[in-house]
Amino acid sequence: MKIAISAREQTLKSLVDLRFGRCNCFIVVDTATGDYRAVSNNQNLNAAQGAGIQSAEIVSRQGVEAVITGHCGPKAFRTLSAAGIKVFTGAEGTVADTVEKFKKGMLTEAEEADVEGHWI
């Protein structure tokens, strides 16, 4: 299963970026093989609005089935849901740890956006 984790740097050792739309990059991990690659999210960093929507499109294009992040706003959540991607919020620590927690089923799926519409 392919998952995307919002991250501050482009490695598994990086900390999870708590922001979804404005994270530095996504680490896309194949949980079966452990293969991973970093996908830049740079184009969003300075968007006044719609960063979450664009990020959702980016991860959707990667063909992931789940997104793990700190917080997710309503627009991003709606876009991810429409794309059939599950959202897991409240992640913290390193990307590698987060992947392990996900595999063990320790993360709970979000049923709705957990933060107000972020404009930044």
Partner: peptide
């Protein structure tokens, strides 16, 4: 240009405020 409409997974979503 404003991320106000997009087509994802065969669904068209609109974000009116954008």
């Amino acid at each position: 240009q404003y991320s106000a409409i997009l087509c994802i997974n065969k669904n068209v979503l609109t974000f009116e405020k954008m």
